[in-house]
Nucleic acid binder design. Structure first.
Length: 278
DNA sequence: TTCCAGGAGCTAG
DNA sequence: CTAGCTCATGGA
């Protein structure tokens, strides 16, 4: 087990994990166990440092986006003179956009549509426990995220029984398509707009999920996912005249350019956290 | 009971 | 191309 030690100021593990970009983590005593594909890490705070323990230090170095300067991202967000964004980025300046596995991200966000975060997490955990590889880590058994090959062996009844609802069909269709040959490395070479177009070809992937997958799974930060929370925030804190979510996304991308993904995550986390307290 | 959640597919017009 | 309807599920 190796340790990575990172300064705390622009890396808050709680905010990074709980801001809604990722579903596979567990709050354990004094820290979090994070799982990505078949790999585990334990992450905790120690004074003004955040410590990442794992047998896969290179993988989690990239996963936590440690080569990026998040002070620069934060200062950029503060530079627009948007009041709600100043507030949101101050509260969430420890958020980092994770470099998640593209395939896992694709299935995770198909599950996320018209669903809520606690239930998304429960559903994904049931899926991993059923089909994922067991991983022994720090005295407990966790489960990896199943590959498309294994997902494609199951039918709609299986997914329905796990609580997928009407999304059962999407899991069957997409896992089969991915298993038959989707080259995620080739997709990663595409620019944002072409990648989004390719992602929209999957049954169950619309504009919002495509933007989440391209951001969280492929690192394309010019997309701005618009869900119900962002739509509320747009109506209350921006000019709020647009009704179509595609046009709201375009409005934000035009405003924030390559920083759209970071800004979106600051705003999403902020909006959800203030509504939760009511 | 109705409304809502990190929406998207399908059909009519 | 857009507007409206429908799609499971469970918590509030």
């Amino acid at each position: 087990m190796q340790k990575i030690i990172v300064d705390n100021e622009f890396f808050n593990i709680k905010d990074t994990l709980e801001c809604g970009q990722v579903f596979r983590f567990f709050s354990e005593e004094n820290g979090y166990v994070v799982i990505s594909t078949d790999k585990c890490a334990f992450v905790y705070e120690d004074g003004d440092k955040t410590v990442i323990e794992s047998d896969y230090p290179d993988y989690f170095h990239n996963y936590f986006d440690l080569d990026r300067d998040y002070k620069e991202v934060f200062l950029k967000a503060q530079s627009y003179g948007v009041e709600v964004l100043n507030l949101a980025s101050n509260i969430g300046k420890g958020i980092r956009i994770l470099n998640q596995d593209p395939e896992e991200t694709l299935f995770s966000f198909i599950i996320s549509q018209n669903n809520n975060i606690p239930r998304i997490k429960v559903t994904i955990e049931k899926l991993c426990k059923e089909l994922g590889n067991p991983i022994e880590f720090k005295g407990k058994t966790y489960y990896g995220f199943p590959k498309a090959e294994r997902l494609s062996l199951k039918d709609c009844g299986f997914y329905k029984a796990l609580g997928f609802g009407y999304r059962d069909k999407f899991m069957v269709d997409v896992s089969s398509k991915v298993y038959k040959g989707v080259d995620f490395k080739e997709l990663k070479k595409l620019p944002y707009k072409e990648l989004k177009k390719a992602l929209l070809e999957f049954n169950g992937v619309g504009p919002k999920v495509a933007d989440c997958v391209s951001l969280f799974g492929f690192g394309k930060t010019e997309g701005f996912p618009v869900d119900t929370w962002i739509e509320k925030l747009y109506k209350e804190n921006f000019d709020g005249k647009l009704l179509d979510r595609n046009k709201i996304a375009d409005f934000f991308t035009e405003k924030f350019g390559n920083y759209s993904g970071y800004v979106q995550q600051y705003l999403f986390y902020y909006k959800r956290s203030i509504e939760e307290k009511r």
